[in-house]
Each structure stands twice: as C-alpha cells, then as structure tokens.
Computed example of a mutant assay.
Amino acid sequence: MTLHVALLRGLNVGGANALPMAELRALCEGLGWRNVQSHLASGNLIFEAEGTRDELAARLRTALAGRGLDVPVLVLPPAELRRAVTGCPFSPAAPKLVHAGFLYGQAAIDRDLFARLAEPGDGLEESGGLLWLHTPGGFGRSKLAQRLEAIAGVPLTARNLSSLGKLVLMLDAREETR
C-alpha cells in the first residue's frame, strides 16, 4: 500500500458540508483504505491505498456524494506536501499568516484584483502548482482570503503553513513505523 495525503475542500467550513472526522475515517476505511488518520476537522487525511491520485480522489468524492456532500478532493503524494512546506516563498512572523493554495488546475492569476484588495505587506506568489498568500494582518480579516479563488482563476483548497507542518510531522511519524 502507498502512503497518500488527501485535502478536502470546504468540509466543515461555516457549517456547510458537515461530517465528523470519525465518520470520514470510517468512510475511507470502507473504501479499503488503511491506517486512515485525520488532522483537524477540515478534511486533512493521511492514508494508505492503491490507485492513482485521480482514482483515489474520485472514489472519495463519490463516497461523500453518497452522503449528500459536494466536496472536491485533492490527493497528493507525501513528497508534494513536503515540497510545499520547504518551498514557502515567505518568512512569516507566524505560520498561520501564510497559506498554500493547492490548485485544481492551471492558475490564471488576476494581479489587478490582488492589487485592489491587498493591504500593505500582503504577498502573493505562484510556484509549482501552489498559490502562496501571505497576510501579515491575519487571514481571517483579509479581503484576499475571501477572493483567493477569483485571484487564482481556478478552484483551490488552502492550508496554512502551521497545518501543513503538522501534516508533515504525521507523515514523518508514519514513515518511521513502516
């Protein structure tokens, strides 16, 4: 079995697409996935399974749809998550101030929209299928956070650097026991 990471977009956000993590893990185990772990309630999974990234993402999305949930799924190899953490183009004061947007397609960045919404110190960088957003004033208060997909020009799912770091620690612990 191969180790994978799944990032679910819009799960348990603002009361929409609600699913307890225990139920999500059980759903994944029902797909034949093994050693399923979750991090936070927003749909971050580490699991072992056979299949391509696209096949695994489609299987989970179909299973979620069977529960009435419309949740896009992105499956990544552990190396891609590690590359994201080590490739951050910003040096934030706190890891929660930088978000990596994992893109579901080719970005078409609207730099004019970014410039209109940005506060002093905000930064935006695209690199290797990721859209990085630095919001020193806080992601929750940023106008950019609310319009990130419009800026990217493509759907994405974002995670802050702190969450990504914790997922990498979970991967490291998993790989040490393999």
Rank of each mutant, 00 (worst) to 15 (best):
M1T: 06
T2M: 14
L3E: 11
H4I: 05
N12R: 08
N12V: 08
N12G: 10
G14E: 00
G15K: 12
N17G: 15
N17W: 00
L19G: 11
P20D: 14
M21S: 09
R25D: 02
R25F: 10
A26E: 15
E29T: 14
G30H: 10
L31H: 09
L31A: 11
W33A: 00
N35M: 09
Q37E: 14
S38I: 07
S38L: 11
L40F: 14
A41W: 03
G43V: 04
L45P: 02
L45S: 05
F47N: 02
F47G: 01
E48P: 00
A49L: 04
E50M: 12
G51E: 02
G51H: 05
G51I: 06
T52C: 08
T52N: 07
R53Q: 15
L56K: 00
A57T: 08
R59C: 10
L60G: 00
L60D: 00
R61L: 03
T62L: 13
A63C: 08
A63I: 08
R67A: 10
G68C: 10
G68A: 13
L69C: 12
P72A: 13
V73A: 12
V73D: 05
P77L: 13
P77S: 14
P77H: 09
A79V: 15
E80I: 02
L81R: 03
R83K: 14
V85G: 01
T86Y: 03
G87F: 06
F90C: 03
P92D: 08
A93L: 06
P95N: 09
K96R: 14
L97P: 04
H99T: 14
G101Q: 09
G101V: 00
F102I: 13
F102Q: 03
L103M: 11
Y104G: 09
Q106K: 15
A107H: 08
A107D: 06
A107G: 07
I109T: 15
I109A: 14
L113S: 12
F114G: 12
A118G: 12
E119I: 00
P120I: 12
D122L: 05
E126I: 00
S127K: 14
G129V: 04
G129I: 01
L130V: 01
L131S: 01
W132S: 02
L133T: 04
L133E: 04
T135R: 03
P136K: 05
G137M: 09
G137N: 11
F139L: 13
G140L: 05
G140K: 04
R141N: 14
S142D: 03
S142E: 01
K143G: 00
L144V: 10
A145H: 09
A145W: 12
A150I: 05
I151T: 05
A152G: 12
G153C: 11
P155I: 12
P155F: 13
R159A: 06
L161E: 02
S162Q: 15
L164I: 04
G165L: 06
K166E: 13
L167E: 04
L169K: 13
M170Q: 10
L171Q: 03
D172Y: 07
A173E: 07
A173Q: 06
R174L: 02
R174S: 04
E175Q: 14
E175A: 14
E175L: 15
E176D: 05
T177L: 10
R178Y: 01
